[in-house]
């Protein structure tokens, strides 16, 4: 399609827009990188929120209280069926006596109140640890519901309220950022396509002559596609750079703040290049259609 002897020409033409209209190009890249910065910021916050949530959920304390009067053999035998349930990673048995010891320790100085008891009122229980990916409120509910149906199980208790609330917030944020992202993406593509259209308009005569002497569409398009992709690349790299500096500054105060992995950063830039490509494709399509429709 494109021959090696045309490469030099195409490269020069691709950079011509930058050269001819430095200000417009600069403004385009700034606007686009601001849009992309917002986008990346939302993704980053969502990422951090997700990690917080996952960490919080790791601490979800699920206790399965057993009915009174089970013999030791039967209680111990529950270990296996518990762990066999998908989503349960570990099941730790806590006997009546252990429960009392724990309670005493928790009460501390007030442990005297326990002296009035004639027998241990605390039930034996299992402490369950959930596997990653089964810690969402829905998953915990499902496991609890299933266990409640077992004859050996008196009740299942877990600290769900704030985990659930966090989950709700995270979900809301995800939807919100998805919405913002779509708006930002459309804006970014629009800005790029507008700039590429400007370049094409200023090269109107060149395109006209190209069509006249038999340039293929691929040949006519390539410089503008490359221009759009360079816009996307520069804007994406700039946004990522600003975000990186911001993260460095914040990290001092907020420890454990997650940042993108190098792979994710690379992915983001590739994504920005794709946006640039889309923007210029839109501009070129519209421009060439307009020219032909005349």
């Amino acid at each position: 399609m494109i021959r090696p002897e045309q490469m030099g020409y195409l490269t020069r033409e691709s950079l011509a827009g930058f050269h001819r209209r430095k200000l417009t190009t600069g403004v385009t890249i700034l606007i686009m990188s601001s849009a992309l910065l917002v986008l990346a910021l939302f993704v980053l916050v969502a990422l951090n929120l997700g990690m917080m949530l996952e960490r919080a959920r790791a601490n979800v304390d699920v206790r399965v209280f057993l009915v009174e009067g089970l013999d030791a053999g039967r209680t111990a035998a529950l270990q296996h069926p518990f762990v066999a349930i998908p989503g349960i990673r570990e099941a730790r048995f806590i006997s009546k006596d252990q429960a009392l010891v724990e309670l005493r320790r928790e009460l501390g100085d007030d442990a005297d109140v326990l002296e009035v008891l004639e027998e241990n009122p605390l039930p034996a229980s299992y402490h369950l640890e959930l596997a990653a990916g089964h810690r969402s409120p829905e998953a915990v509910d499902a496991i609890a519901d299933e266990l409640r149906r077992w004859p050996e199980v008196e009740d299942v208790v877990f600290s769900r309220s704030w985990v659930a609330a966090l989950g709700t917030w995270a979900r809301l944020f995800r939807w919100g950022s998805l919405f913002v992202s779509v708006v930002v993406l459309v804006a970014a593509v629009f800005v790029i396509s507008n700039t590429v259209r400007l370049t094409m308009a200023s090269s109107r005569r060149v395109i006209e002559v190209q069509m006249l002497v038999g340039a293929t569409d691929t040949f006519i398009r390539t410089p503008y596609l490359i221009e759009g992709m360079i816009h996307g690349f520069l804007a994406g790299a700039l946004a990522m750079g600003v975000l990186m500096v911001g993260h460095r500054l914040l990290e001092v105060r907020l420890e454990g703040l997650a940042f993108f992995t190098p792979l994710q950063m690379g992915g983001f830039v590739v994504f920005c290049v794709t946006l640039g490509l889309l923007g210029s494709l839109a501009a070129i399509g519209q421009y060439l259609r307009l020219r032909r429709g005349a």
């Binding site: 494109i2 021959r3 002897e5 045309q6 005569r205 060149v206 002559v209 002497v213 340039a215």
Partner: peptide
């Protein structure tokens, strides 16, 4: 005429060959 105003006479003519992909020597 429809020439490209910012290019020399030579480049204007060579342009048609570039677009078609004629190697430099032949061009």
């Amino acid at each position: 005429f429809r020439l490209l105003e910012d290019r020399s006479v030579y480049d204007n003519v060579a342009f048609a060959q570039l677009v078609v992909g004629v190697p430099k020597a032949a061009r």
